[in-house]
């Protein structure tokens, strides 16, 4: 099994390494923390073509796809200080932000009513993230039983976190103090554990 360090720093969605050098997460954090332009240049090189390709697929219009590259990477730059590992991998953060920018861009282009925006359609990750455990009554019984079985398969460090939060019903702060780990580490572990449980449940179905 992985060491704790590996487990906590490993994103829930595996990275696809396109080249050696710093991970996308390291670059994005550097952009957010110290406005690191070199890091941004690297992110730009890694993502602009992917964003353009997504834009071409969704808009079938080269000009709009180019606008999307600008809009999305502008959002990456301006929102980078808000990124942390709790929000998932850099790839999923950039994917989501690009898809949402594209959705809102197209609505504007088509002069649709502005009642609904991408943020209404795809609620922020944090709301949906814990929903596997916080469930409405109907499906709760099934999922809790499933989770209890699957929970055994988690690494010990993640089991401990799940136990603190979902069995002893502690707050994040209390659990971090109990386990003598930083709050950020606790949150990352919890996130990974929930993502892993979710994947396992998916595999079972």
């Amino acid at each position: 099994m992985n060491s704790i360090e590996e487990v906590t720093s490993k994103p829930a969605v595996e990275s696809v390494k396109t080249d050696d050098g710093p991970s996308d997460e390291e670059l994005l954090l550097a952009v957010g923390v110290s406005q690191d332009r070199r890091a941004f240049n690297l992110l730009f090189a890694r993502f602009s073509k992917r964003i353009f390709a997504m834009g071409m697929k969704l808009t079938r219009n080269e000009q709009l796809a180019q606008d999307l590259v600008q809009e999305a990477l502008m959002t990456v730059w301006t929102k980078a200080p808000l990124y942390d590992l709790d929000r998932g991998t850099a790839q999923s953060w950039i994917f989501t932000l690009t898809r949402n920018r594209c959705f809102d861009m197209l609505r504007k282009k088509k002069r649709q009513p502005q009642t609904i925006s991408a943020d209404d359609i795809w609620p922020q990750e944090s709301d949906a993230e814990m929903s596997v455990v916080h469930e409405e009554q109907g499906s709760q019984a099934v999922e809790v039983a499933q989770i209890e079985r699957l929970y055994e398969h988690l690494p010990d460090a993640q089991q401990a976190v799940i136990e603190q939060i979902y069995i002893f019903d502690r707050t994040h702060e209390e659990a971090a103090a109990e386990l003598a780990i930083p709050l950020g580490t606790l949150k990352s572990r919890l996130r990974l554990a929930v993502a892993k449980l979710r994947t396992m449940i998916g595999v079972e179905q």
Binding site: M74, W77, L82
Partner: peptide
């Protein structure tokens, strides 16, 4: 685009 983008202020 890079220079235009990195000239923008970031959100906190």
């Amino acid at each position: 685009m890079i220079d235009t983008i990195t000239a923008l202020p970031q959100l906190t």
